[in-house]
Computed example of a mutant assay.
Amino acid sequence: MAELVLTDERRGELLALLDDEQRLQVEHPKLAEYLAAAPSLRGTGDDQMDAAFDLRFIHYMADGTSTSANPYWEIVKPLVFEHEGRRVVNGGRPSGSVRLAYAETILQSVYAYAIPSSETVKWAAGFCAGRPLLELGAGRGYWAAQLSRSGMSVDAYDIDPPDAADNASFTRSPGQRSTWHPVGDLHAFEATDRDWSNTVLFLCWPPGWGNKMASEALARFERAGGRRLLFVGEPKGGKTGDDAFFEALSAGWDLAAEDAQFVSWWNVRDVAQGWVRR
């Protein structure tokens, strides 16, 4: 895969930023956090690969808005390898690296928990087949932005939209966008009329650990006549969704499609699935 090539102007901008520690801390604290910790953390063992990753990380985190519509994917794409039948971000190492795991936590906070590769965005659009998409628990709306760019009609909502409320998972930080797509709150969601039978419900990494958000959202969708679900997250027993959600899927839904090209971080087991109500 081709390495990132910077113009002389862009390289000069980044060097000026990195040479001014105070400015870096003020304007890009998330980036400063990573750069302070990374040298002491074990990498993949491939110094060239690690250096190329750091360059992409710095470039897109310092100006991801104007340089790419999907900086998350641009940052991790060269580190995707096949492992045990899955496409994972591990830098070619089955156990990844400590440094990559640290970068993962930052990228998930800045963008989204799951990785919207270009292949998965295309797959999701195909499953929806022109139907409008309703995302609940949208976080920063990063997935909503990618799906919208593919031509889909997307409405996104979150109990705590990061640009308007304190969101523990997606905190506001200088130098990073609070949202990538308009994200309404629950009041806006309740005030919206829609044809539920023709709408696809999208749940991307709904909270787990006993949180009932996923099962309650699915139950309401069912009562309203909804029939198609796009789910990105871990299977039952993982970090996403509650048991009642997965039990409801087993009882009343059929798995109609699964993205074989989906990309995960090596240390999670998330999938992208399309479900249709029986």
Rank of each mutant, 00 (worst) to 15 (best):
M1S: 15
L4P: 06
E9S: 13
G12H: 14
L14I: 14
L15P: 03
A16G: 15
L17S: 11
L17D: 12
L17F: 06
D19C: 15
D20Y: 12
D20G: 12
R23W: 08
R23F: 12
Q25C: 14
H28M: 11
H28I: 07
H28Q: 15
P29V: 10
L31N: 07
A32Y: 09
Y34A: 14
L35Q: 05
A36E: 14
P39S: 09
P39G: 07
G45E: 04
A52T: 04
F53A: 02
L55V: 06
L55I: 02
R56C: 04
F57T: 00
H59Y: 15
M61P: 00
D63R: 13
D63I: 08
S68V: 06
A69K: 14
N70W: 05
P71D: 12
Y72K: 07
Y72S: 03
I75A: 02
I75Q: 02
L79W: 08
F81D: 07
E84T: 11
E84S: 08
G85A: 08
G85H: 07
R87F: 13
V88Q: 02
N90H: 13
G91W: 00
A101P: 00
E104M: 14
E104I: 08
T105F: 03
I106T: 13
S109I: 02
Y111Q: 02
Y113G: 05
A125K: 11
A125T: 10
A125Y: 01
C128I: 12
A129T: 12
P132F: 10
L133P: 01
L134D: 05
L134W: 02
L134G: 03
L136P: 01
G139V: 04
G139W: 07
R140Q: 09
Y142T: 01
W143T: 00
A145C: 11
R149E: 12
V154A: 04
V154I: 13
D158L: 10
D163I: 07
A164R: 15
S169T: 11
S173G: 04
W180F: 15
H181D: 04
V183Y: 00
V183Q: 02
D185W: 01
L186M: 14
A188R: 05
A188N: 09
T192F: 04
D193Q: 10
R194I: 05
D195G: 00
W196P: 00
N198W: 00
F202G: 00
L203F: 03
C204H: 12
P206V: 08
G208M: 10
W209A: 13
G210Q: 13
N211G: 03
F221H: 01
E222C: 06
G225Y: 07
L229E: 04
L229V: 11
L230Y: 06
L230M: 10
L230Q: 05
V232P: 04
P235M: 09
G237Q: 11
G238T: 10
T240I: 02
T240M: 09
G241L: 05
D243K: 09
D243V: 10
A244V: 11
F245I: 07
L249I: 05
S250N: 15
S250F: 02
A251E: 13
G252I: 05
W253P: 03
L255P: 06
A256F: 02
A257M: 04
E258W: 01
D259C: 14
Q261W: 06
V263I: 06
S264T: 15
